[in-house]
């Protein structure tokens, strides 16, 4: 190990974490109040959101400043890399919960419901097919009626979206090559294309949701299928949104001349994140749309 300077950058005390936590407290408790129809909820959420926004700008601004002023060297850089990998792993586990739910209802729950003794079950005549919105009936005193719906097909928009995301994975990599070669034009162009692809993905997704709700009769409330479909694609879409925002920041930073060929953790972290979102989409495409 290099011994010349064993100094690790320990930042000064910072107010951001505390403000962020307070913001989250306001945001979440406000949301609870709103969902349960108590008036101040929306205002608390608004205030909380402002706190979060303030911290996002402040904290990231500070980190970018520290990075650009050369506070982070190899040692710190390695910390960030490990941290990002671990963080992405936790995201994988989060998606695993929803994929697990999909697997469970599809392969265990619904077949079970359909195979009960017809003289005993309330769900006579229910067959185990997928996609399924369930047999319908009373749930905790509310009647749930199964509406007719059309399942999503893999071809068409989803296939186009797959192409979009796969291409965007290539364009960030291309941008990365540009950065490493110190070809700023390639870097900026690659990033710009990636951002555009990300936005087009989101637009397609929004159109698909609109179509599902208005014409296919497919909503969040369409039983097990609707729930797993929208939660999985929804959380994925949310991650694409985050990724696109982060890529935009990276693009702006690149335009401002940030990053060096041998020192650009922020770029790589975002790129990893983007690839992760990409892989999740492939799984979604196969398991949710296709099979």
């Amino acid at each position: 190990m290099a011994t010349e300077t064993q100094h690790y950058y320990v930042p000064n005390p910072s107010p951001y974490p505390f403000i962020l936590s307070s913001g989250l407290l306001l945001l979440t408790s406000g949301f609870v109040f709103k969902m349960n129809n108590f008036a101040p909820g929306v205002w608390m959420m608004f205030l909380g959101f402002l706190c979060v926004l303030y911290v996002l700008f402040g904290w990231f601004g500070k980190v970018i400043g520290e990075s650009e002023s050369g506070q982070y060297r190899e040692w710190e850089d390695k910390s960030f890399r490990i941290a990002m990998i671990v963080f992405i792993s936790s995201e994988v586990a989060f998606f695993a919960a929803f994929f697990g739910a999909l697997f469970f209802v599809r392969n265990i729950g619904i077949p079970e419901l359909a195979h009960f003794d017809p003289s005993l079950t309330p769900y006579k005549g229910f067959t185990a097919i997928w996609p399924s919105a369930g047999p319908g009936g009373m749930v905790l005193g509310k009647l749930y009626e199964v509406a007719k719906f059309e399942p999503m097909k893999p071809l068409g928009l989803p296939a186009i979206n797959t192409m979009i995301l796969l291409t965007s994975g290539l364009t960030v990599t291309w941008a990365h090559w540009g950065l490493v070669k110190d070809n700023r034009r390639q870097l900026i162009l690659g990033l710009f294309m990636t951002v555009v692809l990300g936005i087009s993905f989101l637009l397609c997704q929004a159109y698909e949701y609109h179509h599902a709700y208005t014409e296919m009769g497919l909503t969040l409330g369409t039983g097990a299928y609707g729930a797993t479909f929208f939660m999985l694609t929804g959380f994925h879409g949310f991650h694409v949104l985050l990724g696109t925002i982060m890529l935009t920041v990276i693009l702006l930073r690149s335009i401002n001349g940030h990053f060096k060929p041998n020192h650009h953790f922020a770029f790589e972290g975002v790129a990893w994140y983007w690839h992760f979102v990409d892989v999740v989409w492939l799984l979604l495409f196969v398991l949710v749309y296709w099979l």
Binding site: A101, F104, V105, G109, L113, G134, G137, G221, A224
Partner: peptide
């Protein structure tokens, strides 16, 4: 309005226990 844990919607209360 989702039905992860409602039999009527094809969900399963046991799913929650697994998770």
């Amino acid at each position: 309005g989702t039905h992860f844990f409602d039999a009527a919607g094809g969900g399963d209360p046991i799913l929650f226990q697994h998770l």
